[in-house]
Amino acid sequence: MTNAAADLLPATRTALSLLLLAMADDEFVIGFSDSEWTGIAPMLEEDVAMSSLAQDELGHAQALYRLLADVVDDGRDADAIAYDRPVEGYYHARLLDHPRGDWAASIARRYLYDTADAVRLEALADSSFAPLRDLVDKIRREERYHEMHMTAWLDRLASARGEPRERLLAALERLAPDAATVLAPLPNELSLVMAGIIDATGDELDARWRAKIGRVFERLNLSMVLPVADPLTARTNHSDAFRWLHGEFTAVRSAQPGATW
């Protein structure tokens, strides 16, 4: 069991910082993107629900950025890491580069993301890096509600006849090429497995995720081909949609340097 990042081998510490950056950026980008539904979701209950989900994700991102700041220890705080990077410096999965789209697209993206994130969090539940294990324990108690809600929505759209199902299928088709990017292997992840920080490599996590969603897709008669993600491009070459989002979420920080959230 390790309590301080200083006790890790340098290579392990670097790999851990990339894992934390990937997780924090994923939560930050989907949280910010989904918060755009506040005020305009298709019904009041979903307006509240999506806003609450987004607030949870931004909270997780903040806690992960804080942990990352401790691990990297280069003088930047959580806000500096979250806001003071150019578009190219963000490390979220390409799945989250897709725009929020219509309601079906947001549900499809979030379902794919939440199920993958749940697999990743489960793999960290017994992490040898205590600060991450403790945070993950807390985050999983909240994410359980997200996954429950998204599974209910996927079910609802897929089981409806006509337009809802058609829109869902169209969204899944657009997202499919990037669906597996969340769990794509990270650089030097083997050092994390060997140090007991995570319990499996990206390939193994990908297999667990496919087994899990495969059962749901089969039940709902959704036949999807989800290509294996290329680790070299899974978290780079961000889209114009993200470029726009980045302009939005850095607007206050650029207008007022040092502003806090």
Binding site: D56, E142, M148
Partner: peptide, 29 residues
């Protein structure tokens, strides 16, 4: 249960069919 999610992260929204009042419940975590 009207909504698993509510006005704050820790609350969900319910409705009483007997006295016909909406109320909030603390989420189990």
């Amino acid at each position: 249960t009207d909504n698993l999610f509510g006005p704050t992260q820790c609350r969900s929204v319910r409705y009483c069919r007997s006295c016909r009042k909406p109320f909030e419940a603390i989420k189990v975590v």
